[in-house]
Amino acid sequence: MKAILYVGHGTRSKKGENEAKAFLQKVMAKVDTPIQEISFLELSSPSIDEGFQRCVERGATEVSVVPILLLTAGHMKHDIPAELAAIQTRHPQIPITLQQAFGVQENILDAIAELVRENVLDLTSEDSILIVGRGSSDPEIHTAFSEIEKGIQERLCVARISSCYLAAAEPKFHDGLEVMLEEATQRVIVIPYLLFSGLLLSEVILWCKKRGPKVIQIDPLSRHKVMEDVVVQIATEGTKHDAILNG
Rank of each mutant, 00 (worst) to 15 (best):
A3T: 07
P92Y: 11
K15G: 11
E57M: 07
L5E: 08
H241Q: 15
S162T: 11
E178V: 12
D127R: 13
A22M: 00
V204E: 01
F196Y: 12
R187A: 13
E203N: 07
D229Q: 07
G103D: 09
I80M: 06
S125T: 14
V188M: 09
R223S: 15
I216P: 03
R12C: 00
L177N: 12
I35V: 04
K214F: 10
V230R: 14
D127M: 07
S222N: 12
Q100W: 01
A168T: 04
P92M: 15
S136E: 06
Y193M: 11
V204A: 01
Q233P: 03
I94Y: 00
K15Y: 04
Q105G: 15
R12Y: 00
E178I: 03
A22W: 00
T72M: 13
K209M: 05
V204F: 00
L181I: 08
E154Y: 10
I152V: 15
I87P: 13
F145Q: 06
E140D: 09
S125W: 06
G51M: 04
I131H: 09
T33M: 04
K2W: 11
I4R: 05
T72D: 15
I148G: 03
G8R: 01
A168S: 13
S137T: 15
C208I: 08
A82V: 03
N107H: 07
H241A: 15
T185S: 11
M28Y: 09
E106S: 14
G8F: 00
L194H: 15
V204L: 05
P34M: 06
K225E: 10
I96C: 12
C55R: 07
I108R: 05
P139R: 07
L43S: 13
A86E: 13
C164T: 15
N119S: 02
V7I: 03
T185L: 01
T61P: 07
I141E: 06
C157S: 08
S44L: 08
F52A: 06
R223F: 04
N246V: 07
D138R: 14
D127I: 05
S202R: 12
L166Y: 03
V232N: 07
L177E: 11
H9L: 08
Y165E: 01
F23N: 10
G176E: 14
R223Q: 15
S162L: 11
E126S: 08
P46E: 02
M180Q: 08
S137L: 06
A168H: 03
L115C: 04
E178Q: 15
Q36D: 14
V230N: 08
K209F: 13
S47Q: 09
E19I: 12
I108L: 11
L24M: 02
E170D: 10
Q105W: 04
T33A: 04
I4V: 14
G176N: 04
G10F: 00
M76R: 01
E147A: 02
V120G: 12
K225R: 02
L199T: 00
D32Y: 10
Q217L: 01
G103S: 14
S39T: 01
F145I: 13
E149T: 09
P139H: 12
R12M: 00
L166C: 11
L70C: 02
R155W: 14
